[in-house]
Amino acid sequence: MHPSERACDGYEVVAVASSAGGIHGLGTLLGGLDAQLPVPVLIVQHLDPRHRTVIAEVLARRTAMRVKLAEDQEQIFPGTVYIAPPDRHLLVRPGGLLALTDSELVHFVRPSADLLFESVAGAYGSQAIACVLTGTGRDGSMGVDAVKSRGGTVIVQDPATAEFRGMPEAALGTGTVDFVLPLEEIAAVISGLVEAKRQ
């Protein structure tokens, strides 16, 4: 599929999931995105809830985009990266309003990529891009199914380039993936998809 084939749908949000090895993966992805990206980026990275996280500060050094921990009832804006805080599920409501919850773990994790992706599918339908990067386990696989079933686009890091193959392979196993890409190519494809609707 060529990015221009999705231009008629337009995109409004990018949701990204990662776990083990994800700081490097996210840094590479965000480093390839322009500060003027016309959509927000929502991220679930599995973090140790016992420690204060500095992930926003770390990733802010890799990208020109604004990077912050997501806040409950926060409105999302283009060109900004919102990261789920440790031990809180991140959801997005129609109209771009974030919600943080401490509801039960999903696949033994909180935050859960599945819950983020499912909320993105419900709020944005065909205007959503979901991306799964390196990580262990299966988190994200049910969510990409939801995104695809609502007409959204699914991108998965090629497991051969992932530090940990579990999450990318589980996503691929759904049969609902549009792009399987080396880590270094994902940002360019996301930019191409998003920009295509502006033309």
Rank of each mutant, 00 (worst) to 15 (best):
L172G: 07
A84H: 06
P3K: 04
V189N: 02
Q157A: 11
L105F: 11
A187T: 06
T28N: 08
P85Y: 04
Y82K: 00
I190S: 05
A20I: 14
V147Q: 02
L26D: 03
E118Q: 15
T174Q: 12
E74P: 04
Q45P: 01
C131F: 06
V67M: 02
S141T: 11
P182W: 01
K197G: 14
E104I: 06
V132D: 07
V92D: 02
T28K: 12
T153M: 09
G27N: 08
L133C: 10
G175S: 06
G22E: 04
V58P: 00
A146C: 10
Y82E: 00
K148F: 09
L69K: 00
D9I: 07
I83L: 12
L193F: 05
P78L: 09
R110L: 10
P38A: 13
A171G: 11
E104L: 13
V189D: 01
G122T: 00
L116Q: 01
Y124L: 08
P40N: 02
D87E: 14
G192W: 03
R88V: 00
P38E: 07
D72C: 10
A146P: 08
G27D: 08
M65T: 07
E12K: 14
T136A: 07
T101C: 08
T153W: 10
F77S: 11
P38N: 12
M167N: 09
I186M: 15
D48C: 12
L90Q: 01
G21A: 12
G175N: 05
A188R: 14
G96Q: 03
A17I: 12
R50A: 13
D158S: 14
V109A: 09
